[in-house]
Amino acid sequence: MNENQSNNGALVRVENVGKIFHRGSEDIHVLADLHLQVPAGEFLALMGPSGSGKTTLLNLIGGLDRPTKGSVVVAGERIDQLSDRTLAAWRARHVGFVFQLYNLMPVLTAERNVELPLLLTHLSKADRKKHVDAALAMVGLSHRAKHYPRTLSGGEQQRAGIARGIVTDPTLLLCDEPTGDLDRKAGNEILDLLQALNREHGKTIIMVTHDPHASARASRTVYLDKGQLSNEPVK
């Protein structure tokens, strides 16, 4: 049974999901009865105004947070019911994250940063090196492998971040504003790279963005406002 079949054709299925944050005595309803299906191989852009809950939804799909109600099923597994320990192992196996501010370890070189997710596998040092080299080559950063993040440009740091996200060949790549901190040229290069990963390597990508230019690269765009999704931009 493949992943799509196991999930009624969708790699990601978010059903009836609600998320409430508590701030003091106040309850903040961020997501309400939300439904979303993402087929395998799709490049989905998730847009919406600030505070609309885009990152919260991405965190729920990536197993970084749990919904207050509803279910999140990824690759046939209901991840909202997994224990913390199992969920961590699940993330290591299935999800690659790309963050707006790259979130690289400043004390590690680019290649050591990319190697981090592989430390959780049983691969030998030599095999880890092969995977790291392949990931860095894929994002065009082989020549900067030994450089520390502070010596890399923003675009190069984001390439290293993407290489870290794909080095374990995850089921799903989740990108939170991947071009949000880059200039137009570097942003375009990153979008080219994500598009190539989706089209040439079949990666399923969910990308949160504010930028219509970025969302135009996706195969589908959905809009989030007041905790609800729609296929049309918010007026």
Partner: peptide, 16 residues
Amino acid sequence: TGELGVLKAIGFTNGQ
């Protein structure tokens, strides 16, 4: 704190 968050995000368990 942020870096520890990244480690957890990529799959490091609380024990690790």
